[in-house]
């Protein structure tokens, strides 16, 4: 049983201290296990970014407790270690790159951790190679594509040798190609390097690749389970303002003519196979 890396224990959060603000997070309880790939879904304004910022102490809960590797995020003295362990990649690639040269940006985190210069150099090169950006190490960030910038941001997190990456809609501003490159990188880091991933997204297709899916609505957790479990509940998803992934929508639409199509079809391959199987069955009957 893997130990939980991030735990939310009955966490609530209000932006305004006083006044009639509705909570951006209410009674959130969940855990992200070491090495897991968890997707967090939700419509705009459902509180996803708030949850992300609660993960590394950028925001601290109004009530309840967030712990990272056992450390409470509301204690100032824990923040350094928590942020070393949990790296963040934000939505807008332009607003998270700090230096005017790619490799200097990747070095920013380790420099803050007071790592020795030669070791920083080694980590920066390794991190850039890991995300496939080594040949762009001397490039100016504003000349890179969105997907490349996000991979630089991921390298910046990797160079800190953290355990976990939280990506807050990191693919939302990218073209399909850039999105694909970033998702590939993230999946590989999770599968091969054992890095824990909390992927916040509103692209359902990205969530189908996760081990576990959390769905937020109005600041609370509406659904959770494996992708197959969550995407087998189209009504509940629709109530939370979300659609099924395209292959699942297609399967659902085809069910009126092919009643034997199973539910829980998530990827394009599964969908194609399921349709082929249903057609064979129909022809056989």
């Amino acid at each position: 049983m893997p130990s939980p890396l991030i735990t939310f224990d009955n966490v609530s959060f209000h932006y305004a201290v006083e006044g009639e603000s509705s909570p951006a997070a209410r009674a959130l309880s969940f855990a992200v296990e070491q090495g897991a790939f968890v997707a967090l879904l939700g419509r705009n304004g459902s509180g996803k970014s708030t949850a992300a910022k609660l993960c590394n102490g950028l925001l601290t809960p109004t009530a309840g407790q967030v712990r990272v590797g056992g450390l409470d995020t509301s204690l100032e003295e824990n923040l350094f270690e928590i942020r070393r362990r949990v790296g963040m990649v934000f939505q807008n690639p332009d607003n998270q790159i700090i230096a005017a040269i790619v490799e200097d940006d990747v070095a920013f985190g380790p420099e803050n951790l007071c790592v020795a210069p030669e070791e920083i150099r080694r980590r920066v090169d390794a991190a850039l190679a890991e995300v496939g950006m080594l040949e762009h190490r001397l490039a100016e960030p504003h000349k890179l594509s969105g997907g490349q910038k996000q991979r630089v941001a991921i390298a910046g997190v990797l160079a800190m040798q953290n355990d976990c990456i939280v990506l807050d809609e990191a693919t939302a501003m990218l073209d399909p190609r850039g999105r694909h490159d970033v998702m590939d990188t993230v999946l590989r880091l999770n599968r091969e390097r054992g890095i824990t991933v909390l992927l916040i997204t509103h692209f359902m297709e990205e969530a189908t690749q996760a081990d576990r899916v959390l769905v937020m609505d109005g600041g609370s957790l509406a659904l959770q389970g494996t992708p197959a479990e969550v995407f087998a509940q189209p009504e509940a998803l629709r109530a939370a303002g979300l659609e099924l992934p395209a292959p699942a929508r297609l399967a659902e639409a085809l069910r009126s003519v092919l009643p034997s199509l199973p539910s829980g079809v998530l990827t394009e391959e599964q969908c194609a196979e399921a349709i082929a199987a249903a057609l064979r069955k129909g022809a056989g009957a």
């Binding site: 942020r83 700090i98 200097d104 920083i120 800190m160």
Partner: peptide, 15 residues
């Protein structure tokens, strides 16, 4: 801040 910059802590430099 997410990358451990505090504004007051010692830092090293890669270069």
């Amino acid at each position: 801040e997410s990358r451990c910059y505090t504004g007051t802590n010692e830092r090293t430099g890669m270069k």
